[in-house]
Design a protein around this nucleic acid. Structure first.
Lengths: 109, 109
DNA sequence: TACTGGTACATAGTGACACCGAATACCGGT
DNA sequence: ACCGGTATTCGGTGTCACTATGTACCAGTA
């Protein structure tokens, strides 16, 4: 993709991952694959893992190590109460930004 | 505001400013004031000026120095052809991201 | 005159984050 | 023994918004 997406993902990718985890628990490799599926064609794997480490350190998720049949053990993340709260704030922030931009798009043509 | 907005603005603030300039020419101080008006309560002035320097160097805008009655001369920016093209790509990128997020918001509750 | 405050721009340093590249580890199939 | 898919980690890079500060111009006022 372009540099535009890269920059725009800053801040939003975190929300995206948290939103995914709010639906169901998941692990890094799975999340990366899902994102690619959704059109984020070249999200770097390293990016997702780094993000997961960050949100874990901030206490937004719980982690459980689960053995895999096909490779090394998975680190399965699930959103906890604090994470849910943070995600709600994310949606509020997103709405705010989204509304301004939608307004600009209509007005500015 | 919070850190969430700060991160989310990366990449989008540029688009916002370009969108403003697509409607009418403007200068830094004016843009900053407008943004504050729109609810971006603590956009730093320095941020806007740095952004304007960047988009000027990338050739997305034309600049004209206009004397002011109230202070030092203004640097009035206007979107040129290349800028318009870049803005269109910005909107495409934004739409992509926006759609994924809206989808997530509905599915994830 | 000196001082204050609004207008207007510039810039050095900081922190956060997505990216790249490479490495490690486990396993099944050929 | 080797390759490819699964799964995680980590060091280094570039970009961007923020902070803080400084410069400059002008009007009003004490």
């Amino acid at each position: 993709m372009g540099k535009q997406v890269t920059e725009m993902l800053k801040g939003t990718l975190e929300g995206i991952v948290l939103a995914i985890l709010s639906g169901r628990a998941a692990y890094g490799y799975e999340i990366t694959a899902w994102l690619r599926d959704q059109g984020f064609s070249d999200i770097a794997e390293g990016t997702v893992y780094a993000l997961l480490v960050r949100i874990e350190q901030r206490g937004l998720v719980d982690v459980e190590k689960v053995p895999s049949e096909k490779g090394p053990p998975r680190k399965v993340y699930s959103l906890n109460a604090q994470g849910r709260e943070y995600l709600e704030e994310f949606w509020r922030t997103w709405s705010f930004l989204s509304e301004r931009l939608e307004q600009l798009r209509e007005g500015g043509e």
